[in-house]
Design a binder for these strands. Structure first.
Length: 306
DNA sequence: ATGCTCTAGAGCGTTACATCA
DNA sequence: GGTGATGTAACGCTCTAGAGC
């Protein structure tokens, strides 16, 4: 049985690392909604037309929440990943979290090539997941992936190894430098932290997700405030109009005609805020004199032109 | 030049575990 | 001690870009 479990793990490793495309055929197996094609991952990003952040997040230049500069766009990041083959400079000499017991060199390299089974230290098939089995361990012990495999046969439960503070700190520093890693950097980090490359990879994936979530929250807050501002402005203008009416300074035909509903969108080419008037024959979209937008989103970096 | 296949790596949603109040 | 909330490591799936044929 143990052999079976290990075999399945290896299979999962291979699945994960040697070609996820093989799993594409499973997509239809999604229950009642299976007929409906699953939406693309990128489609899930908010397309809030009429908002300054209407650009899909995956294409936006993300703001670095850590204040370490701007994240490049997805494609740029990928390019960067390919282009950047330097080792992570700040890792020089850092060997945090290497437990004495683990031994610096005895564990050998953690590179993916050297450790083909290193993909998911805790990876098991979901169907095998069962009770928690591992007793609490010390930080270093828990963070030591090597010691897991030996005693992980208990039902194949997915064991979650919390990273030590030192490991998290180093990963955080690394993330500030690059929010993606090339294989060399990944392997180096894994070696330095005594983790498996897959763990480093997962950490970066989750970290990017957290960053994006934070950015979304920030955007939402900005939009909320912007909405409030516009509401106030609308109120003020209404008041002003009433006052003018009261004074009969404005001929009725100038204010009685209610303008057609207007939506605000981002022009994909010039990326300026434009209003699309719903009224027919209103002519082309017109840029909005948007002091407020500028005030609300002063530091939004320009989107990379593709 | 074009189309196809394969692979790596990304994002996203979800699950499961650890920790804390 | 049990429990719900929260954080996050890990997983599965899908998509896309690039390389090779």
């Amino acid at each position: 049985m143990e052999m079976i479990v290990r075999g399945m793990r290896d299979e999962q490793y291979n699945h994960h690392h040697l070609g996820l495309g093989l799993s594409l055929g499973v997509a239809g197996d999604m229950g009642p909604a299976g007929d409906e094609p699953r939406r693309r991952a990128d489609d899930s990003v908010a397309h809030v037309s009429s908002l300054p952040s209407a650009v899909p997040l995956s294409q936006q230049q993300c703001w670095n929440m850590n204040g370490a500069g701007l994240f490049p766009s997805d494609s740029d990041r990928r390019t960067m990943v390919v282009a950047c083959h330097n080792e992570i400079p700040f890792l020089e000499g850092i060997d945090v979290n290497r437990s004495p017991a683990a031994g610096a060199e005895t564990r050998g390299s953690c590179s993916e090539e050297d450790e083909p089974g290193a993909s998911s230290p805790n990876s098991t098939l979901s169907s095998l997941s069962g009770k928690r089995s591992a007793p609490a361990r010390s930080e270093h012990e828990r963070a030591d992936p090597g010691s897991d495999d030996e005693d992980s046969g208990a039902g194949g439960s997915r064991k979650k190894l919390r990273l030590s503070k030192d490991q998290a700190a180093v990963l955080e520093e690394s993330f500030k430098e690059h929010n993606t890693l090339n294989p060399k950097q990944k392997a180096a980090l894994a070696r330095q932290l005594n983790l498996k490359p897959r763990q480093v990879e997962v950490w970066f994936q989750n970290r990017r997700a957290r960053t994006k979530l934070k950015q979304t929250e920030v955007d939402c807050e900005l939009l909320r405030r912007c909405c409030e501002t516009l509401t106030d402005e609308n109120c003020r203008l209404h008041k002003e109009l009433l006052e003018l009416r009261a004074l009969k300074l404005v001929p009725p035909q100038h204010y009685m005609r209610t303008p057609p509903p207007t939506t605000l969108t981002i022009c994909p080419s010039c990326e300026r805020l434009v209003s699309n008037s719903a009224g027919a024959g209103e002519g082309p979209t017109r840029p909005v004199p948007s002091r407020q937008w500028g005030a609300m989103f002063p530091e939004r970096p320009a989107q990379r032109s593709s």
